[in-house]
């Protein structure tokens, strides 16, 4: 019996992990993105059908701000606990998974941040079609600056939320329900409050450069904490999972 070997160099286990995590995430994204883009359009159609009129981008802005962030929060939590035992059982170190998770969160956040402007472009077409006018400074003209700033801001918020989801999940995985809930004040509460504060109306008081620096620092701290907790995690028994 001979081993089947490829003539190409084998990808590192870490690259394989990133590929698998991205594939897993991609399968959900294929459904998630069209739904997120479609929901405001359907709402606008209903409002127009009822004879209503909008002068702002509240629906698309609300969906664009919240849906990808909470989606990545949930996916961050799910991927962490789902892949930790599988990767270790396949002979990979925990730190390689932690690194793969961080890269995956950054890639997914970048992807969704790039999709975000498409929603505003579609919204602009819809508003034009219905003869509605949009407020200045909303949508593509982000309060933070131009299109670039909108994408960077969304990327940082989405990456932060994915990392926070993963941090919350690994804390529950390691500490159980009681201590995990108590620790959620630190793992979810503190960094989550920063992200939500900066993405809400209150964030408008903060200079854009400060907002981005604080978000980047939050991502760094949360990911360092995630790495520390994943690296020492005991793989639980099958019954406990």
């Amino acid at each position: 019996m001979t081993s089947s070997r490829s003539t190409h160099p084998r990808p590192t286990p870490q690259r394989v992990a990133v590929a698998v995590l991205m594939t897993s995430l991609g399968r959900v994204l294929v459904w998630f993105v069209p739904i997120v883009l479609a929901v405001p359009i359907v709402l606008y159609a209903l409002i127009a059908a009822l004879g209503g009129e909008l002068d702002g981008s509240g629906v698309m802005m609300g969906v664009a701000n919240n849906a990808p962030a909470w989606f990545l929060f949930a996916m961050g939590a799910s991927l962490t606990t789902q892949y930790l035992p599988v990767n270790v059982a396949h002979g990979m170190t925990r730190r390689s998974l932690a690194t793969a998770l961080s890269w995956t969160f950054l890639a997914a956040a970048a992807l969704l941040a790039l999709v975000l402007p498409i929603g505003f472009v579609i919204e602009a077409w819809v508003f034009e079609a219905y003869g509605w006018t949009r407020e200045a400074g909303i949508g593509l003209a982000s309060p933070l600056g131009g299109l670039g700033a909108l994408i960077v801001d969304a990327f940082l918020r989405f990456a932060a939320m994915a990392s926070i989801g993963a941090l919350a999940a690994i804390t529950y995985y390691r500490c159980g329900a009681w201590w995990g809930s108590l620790a959620a004040l630190a793992t979810v509460g503190a960094p989550g409050a920063i992200v939500i504060y900066l993405s809400g109306d209150l964030g408008a008081w903060v200079a854009p450069s400060v907002t981005m620096a604080v978000l980047a620092a939050t991502i760094a701290v949360v990911n360092l904490s995630l790495h520390a907790l994943v690296r020492g995690a005991t793989i639980r028994s099958k019954e406990a999972q």
Binding site: M1, T2, S3, S4, R10, P11, P13, V16, V20, Q82, P85, V86, V88, A89, H90, G91, M92, I235, K238
Partner: peptide, 26 residues
Amino acid sequence: GGDVLDDRVDAALRYAARIRSTWDAS
């Protein structure tokens, strides 16, 4: 029960094959 990828059987095997340098596909 195995700690395998929560996917289809062939995907779980492909995953193991990609990670294990000593994997024998045949």
